[in-house]
């Protein structure tokens, strides 16, 4: 049981890294990114393949962050001059492209068969509880560092310009600053965080296939930050914890709801989340942790 709880904690923390990035993008510079899972996938495959070819995990994790961050650069360069909704579509297309490349480039990624036998973190510890605990602790540390980094950015000269972009892009251009440059940096940083999340995911699950990187992952993260409150570190935390608790916890709910089969339960879960999203956007668009003084 304890081991199962730890597994939930680890997955939640991995999702938290994804939420931090998306929340920073949308909450600070208003980027609607529907392709976050693409960077997650790039991180997972980069670290997994490097580790399998003998690269130490510390280096493969760094490579995952760098690869995902660099992948964001051309996306930002070509699409940030587009309007918000077009950016959303371009990023969605990007993440699907990444997935299809992973499916087709069998020589590198083994296609739909996936990559098995990815080395675990803390392989020196006995498999099971200790290794899991160490992984969870490391993840917690990484999440704390990510939260601190974001906090530092928001309260810095960079954060000041980000707020200025939100208030009035044209005024910023008139003063000689290029909003796109700041957006690209935010995009790359968030992508790097997603890359690290992907690496943790790959080395925790130890077996990755393209089907794990479908757009639903991106939208789970969106659900989390909408429920928790966009643009706030606390919002990302609360939203992610609630969403993951619900997703996991609802597995057991079937015992209490009569006449619902396993398959129907899966649909019911999505249905409940959908209803929650509708209610939140209608009655509490700022999320649970949002500014309580505004509607």
């Amino acid at each position: 049981m304890l081991s199962y709880l730890l597994a939930i904690v680890i997955i939640t923390l991995i999702y938290l890294l994804l939420s931090f990035g998306l929340s920073l993008q949308y909450g600070s510079v208003g980027l609607i990114n529907f392709g976050h899972v693409g960077f997650f996938a790039i991180g997972a495959y980069t670290s997994a393949l490097l580790a399998l070819s003998g690269v130490p995990l510390l280096a493969s994790f760094c490579a995952a962050a760098i690869a995902a961050g660099l992948a964001a650069w051309p996306i930002g360069l070509i699409s940030l001059r587009l309007r918000d909704d077009y950016f959303a579509i371009v990023t969605l297309g990007f993440s699907e492209t990444v997935r299809i490349i992973i499916v087709s480039e069998k020589w590198l990624t083994n296609g739909v068969q996936g990559v098995p036998g990815i080395p675990r973190l803390f392989s020196s510890l006995p498999v099971g509880f200790e290794a899991q605990l160490a992984t969870a602790a490391l993840l917690l540390l990484v999440c704390a560092a990510a939260a601190f980094t974001i906090w530092r950015i928001i309260n810095s000269p960079f954060g000041r310009v980000i707020q200025a972009i939100r208030d009035n892009e044209d005024a910023l251009k008139a003063l000689g600053k290029d909003p796109a440059r700041f957006k690209i940096q935010v995009l790359m940083l968030s992508a790097a965080l997603a890359g690290i999340a992907g690496a943790f995911y790959a080395h925790y699950i130890t077996f990755i296939i393209p089907e794990q990187f479908v757009p639903l992952v991106t939208f789970y993260v969106w659900m989390a930050i909408i429920i928790g409150g966009v643009g706030r570190i606390s919002g990302a935390i609360v939203g992610t914890v609630l969403l993951m608790t619900f997703l996991e916890g609802s597995r057991f709910m079937r015992d209490f709801i009569p006449g619902v089969s396993e398959v129907e339960m899966a649909s019911l879960r999505i249905g409940v989340i959908g209803l929650l999203l509708v209610l939140f956007t209608l009655y509490r668009p700022q999320g649970l942790m949002g500014d309580y003084t505004k509607r």
């Binding site: 310009v161 200025a164 208030d167 044209d170 005024a171 910023l172 008139a174």
Partner: peptide, 14 residues
């Protein structure tokens, strides 16, 4: 087109 959520000083600094 002021940066409405920033203070006057922050507007200038930005």
């Amino acid at each position: 087109k002021e940066f409405s959520h920033l203070s006057v000083r922050e507007n200038l600094m930005a």
